[in-house]
Nucleic acid binder design. Structure first.
Length: 612
RNA sequence: GCCUCUGUAGCUUAGCCUGGUAGAGCGUCAGUUUCAUGAGCUGAAAGUCGGGUGUUCAAAUCACCUCAGAGGCACCA
């Protein structure tokens, strides 16, 4: 049996996961599941990097014991896997004994070989950061974060002779399909060829967290040197059954930021330790949220676990896989999610299943025996093409190919009008349609596992593999329609309140009653029942509730002009209902005839700041 | 600073390597259907292919310049 070993990067546990973590796991999961339905023996690994110094720092900040902090956070990452139906076969943590043992083993192996030697690390050391800075980090010779001049420090360190393996690495990276996509390969190759490979510092002195080097108790192994090894230690190198069966890895799925580590440093470590090289490094891009980078300071990082309480996991999986082309950066927005969920999942797929099941139930309540197969319909399904797209990691295109067939099915029903048919013709058409839904459930199972199961249950069929994705296999269908696959996501409609109009002249006391705040426009949506109105969701800063405001800006501002704009809002305005939608505040704007111009703070200032 | 990538209809994007009338999805508009989830189907409008110069009989596609955005530059998983 063909084996398939796939991994994700292991995550730092210095905080909660963001949507990017979910994205990487979903990609790997789809590939793993695809290879499973192809009948391969799959091992899918993900996990956490517990030993990173960053974790220790974050624990300090949270004032928790490091070990507890790391354990708690690792649990959240495991929960993330559960929530998104990630089918990993194992979840490794680098604090596991066998991993620690492995890290130390390859460290001493390389040391004995002479690939690791003791040396001195010199550089600018910032006391505030407790870290070495490169000259590029410095602004006016100062650490930009602490505004202090760093001191020149020398520290004992162990170094790894990366340069020794330069030629081998170049030839590995040059080999076809080692790094996918191509441009990421070229990037690495260009750097390898143009730059000198410096030896790498692979240890840190006197740290309280991390794996102690086997040759010097004062030093601990630097994070990535230990972390990369998880791909091997999880298989019980060197004698474990799993290692013998699954190594080398077929695919390491990673984000573009850590390509150098996986394409250059990891191979060097393996060369030094005499371990076979992995077959492929699959580099994915980064996700942005509503068009901007994920960052804590922007406050736009989405908690995927929370997100999954709001939307079905399958819908989130779908939009990430369908929207983003692997290797490129992609954008995630709830707007895109809603649109894809409603159009493609609910309308195209959900409705197809629903209409076919109704036809089958109405006409064949006692069951439908195997009948002729409609060749014309199945000529529109190209499974080979879908498979080859998956093999090329073009997940979005594979999904689009599946959807082509879904659309063909809908078209087919409209053209053939089975509800007007009788007898054998009717049997043939309904049987063929049920078969196409069954085949779809197989093809979709890697992408939408929950949905796939729901379809199968209604068809009264068991999960199948790719070989079974051909028509004419089921001898009798006894279907049972059970509710809807995807409920539409509707815009929030809130309950009415009283509208109030006020005032003439006011004094300062009255004015000071106004609670004016700087807010950030977080989301912009169309009012379902008004041409000139937007529904805005305003972010009022940390710890504050968001406000929904209906505002007549449509003729003056495009959505993208508004998103992320800082505006001034009256926060304590009585809530009003504007054409059926509650408005919980009001934006300040200058108005002249048709012209509208939003009032804004003139300089950069915190969201939530009071305006007076 | 050096390097890489991206810029195509209102939005998301295919095509660029291997030059030859710009394809698609969403949205919009119109028509049509009732088996089905305010679903389906058919069709239409909509693009100076960031800007400029050049190569060529011919450029979204090749070269050079320029503008805008994103990313990498080694201890950042």
């Amino acid at each position: 049996m063909k084996k398939f070993y796939i991994t994700t990067a292991i995550d730092y546990v210095n905080g909660r996961p963001h949507i990017g973590h979910a994205y990487e796991k979903i990609i790997a999961d789809v590939l793993a599941r695809w290879h499973r339905i192809k009948g391969e023996d799959v091992f899918f690994l993900t996990g956490t990097d517990d030993n990173a110094q960053k974790n220790a720092e974050a624990a300090k900040e949270a004032r928790k014991p490091i070990k507890q902090f790391v354990n708690d956070n690792a649990k959240i990452f495991q929960e993330l896997c559960k929530v998104f139906n990630i089918s990993n076969d194992y979840f490794i943590r680098t604090t596991e004994k066998r991993h620690i043992k492995f890290s130390q083993e390859i460290f001493s192996k390389s040391f004995k070989k002479g690939d690791i030697y003791k040396g001195k690390y010199e550089g600018y050391y910032c006391l505030g950061c407790e870290a070495f800075l490169t000259e590029k980090d410095l602004v006016d010779e100062k650490c930009p974060e602490h505004n202090k001049k760093p001191e020149w420090r020398e520290e004992e360190s162990y170094f790894f002779k990366l340069s020794k393996y330069k030629d081998k690495i170049i030839s590995l990276v040059s080999s076809k399909d080692f790094i996918i996509p191509k441009d990421k390969k070229n990037e690495i190759l260009a750097r390898l060829k143009s730059e000198e490979l410096k030896d790498l510092s692979v240890s840190r002195k006197n740290t309280e967290w991390g794996i102690i080097t086997p040759i010097d108790k004062e030093h601990s192994i630097y994070v990535w040197y230990d972390a990369l090894g998880n791909y091997v230690s999880a298989l019980d190198y060197p004698k474990g059954k799993k290692f013998k069966k699954y190594w080398p890895a077929d695919v390491h799925v990673i984000g573009k930021g850590i390509n150098w580590f996986h394409s250059v440093i990891w191979p060097a470590i393996l060369f030094s330790a005499n371990i076979t090289q992995p077959k492929r490094i699959l580099v994915h891009g980064y996700l942005t949220v509503n068009g901007s980078k994920i960052s804590k300071s922007l406050g736009n990082s989405i908690d995927p676990i929370e997100l999954a309480t709001k939307y079905p996991a399958d819908s989130i999986r779908y939009v990430l896989l369908r929207e983003v082309s692997l290797g490129d950066d992609g954008d995630f927005s709830e707007e895109a999610l809603t649109s894809r969920h409603n159009n493609e999942l609910a309308n195209d797929l959900g409705n197809l299943v629903s209409r076919v099941l109704t036809l089958a139930e109405k006409n064949f309540s006692k069951g439908l025996k195997k009948s002729q197969v409609d060749k014309k319909l199945f000529s529109k399904l190209n499974i080979k093409k879908i498979d080859s797209l998956m093999e090329n990691f073009e997940i979005n295109n594979a999904l689009s190919e599946v959807w082509k067939f879904i659309n063909e099915c809908n078209k087919h029903i409209n053209q053939e009008k089975p509800w007007e048919m009788k007898g054998k013709e009717l049997e043939k058409h309904i049987y063929s349609l049920l078969e196409s839904i069954r085949i779809l459930s197989i093809l979709l199972s890697p992408f939408l596992p929950e949905t796939s199961n729901k379809i199968l249950k209604q068809l009264n069929q068991k999960p199948g593999n790719l070989k079974e994705a051909k028509p004419g296999l089921v001898k009798i269908y006894k279907v049972k329609k059970e509710g809807i696959l995807f409920n539409k996501i509707e815009e929030k409609m809130l309950k009415p309140d009283k509208i109030e109009n006020n005032l003439d002249k006011i004094d300062i006391k009255e004015f000071s009653k106004l609670d004016l705040r700087v807010a950030r426009i977080k989301e912009v949506g169309d009012h379902p029942d008004a041409k000139k109105l937007y529904i805005l969701i305003l972010d009022l800063g940390k710890g504050e509730h968001e406000l929904q405001v209906v505002s007549g800006l449509k003729e003056n501002y495009k959505k993208e002009e508004l998103i992320n704009k800082r505006v001034i809002v009256i926060r304590n305005l009585k809530h009003a209902v504007i054409r059926g939608i509650e408005s919980q505040g009001m934006l300040l704007a200058a108005v002249f005839k048709d012209k509208v111009s939003l009032a804004q703070p003139d300089k950069d200032i915190e969201i939530g700041a009071k305006v007076m």
